[in-house]
């Protein structure tokens, strides 16, 4: 199928490595996710105290988005960039943490700051807030990455005129296992926006 839209930029975060458009920006050895993502935030020059209040899923999604958006946001005007994100484990990692806080009636202190992250779409809210994206947004859950669906939904938003650009993301985090693949779809660019290319970039 031909397409008028392109993937103009993409970012991957996995195995203690941050890559932007295929180039490695940061690589670390033998660190757990929290330490890695903190370093990654410094590497891309993020200064945003709220970042450290986020749960791991939000940190992962936020940073993947940030690596792309920091160079693609027009600070003077409203940015019409929709957010379409998905993953496998929803917010289960934080769900388990929250459940632990209520499972012992002797030590029963449900935390609102943990509870708020027991919804997977909070990470999309975090990205929207940072870049003031008052745009179409959705969060989906699949048992694995679905380039077909991601490309269909993004294409619908673009072709219907609901948005000018779409930032898509697969952001999976569960018990220190993680992978983020975030990419920006718009008119300009060199990589055609189709499911084969999306799958290839995801696998690379």
């Amino acid at each position: 199928m031909t397409t008028n839209y392109h993937i103009s930029s993409y970012c991957k975060i996995e195995n203690n490595t941050l890559q932007l458009n295929g180039a490695t920006v940061l690589e670390m050895n033998d660190v757990l996710f929290p330490e890695f993502i903190k370093n990654a935030s410094k590497t891309i020059g993020l200064e945003y105290p709220k970042f450290f209040k986020m749960d791991n899923l939000s940190k992962l999604a936020f940073l993947g988005a940030e690596a792309i958006l920091k160079d693609n946001i027009d600070l003077e005007n409203e940015n019409d960039i929709a957010l379409v994100f998905a993953n496998k484990s929803s917010s289960l990692d934080t769900d388990v943490k929250y459940q632990d806080s209520i499972s012992d009636s002797e030590n029963y202190f449900p935390s609102p700051a943990v509870f708020v992250y027991t919804l997977p779409n909070i990470c999309v809210g975090e990205i929207s807030i940072k870049h003031q994206l008052k745009t179409e947004n959705a969060f989906f859950v699949f048992d694995d990455f679905k380039p077909d669906f991601m490309s269909n939904y993004a294409s619908y938003l673009l072709e219907s005129g609901k948005t000018q650009k779409v930032l898509c993301g697969w952001v999976e985090y569960y018990k220190n296992e993680y992978k983020a693949f975030v990419y920006l779809v718009e008119k300009s660019g060199t990589i055609a926006h189709d499911k084969q290319n999306i799958q290839t970039l995801y696998n690379q």
Binding site: K88, S89, L119, N121, I122, F140, V141, F142, D143
Partner: peptide, 25 residues
Amino acid sequence: QLATLAKKINTFFGFKTEPIVVSNA
């Protein structure tokens, strides 16, 4: 897992395509 739940319902009713889960609060 939400996908496990969706699969169970999908199988019960004999859908041929993969289910979609919308989890947007």
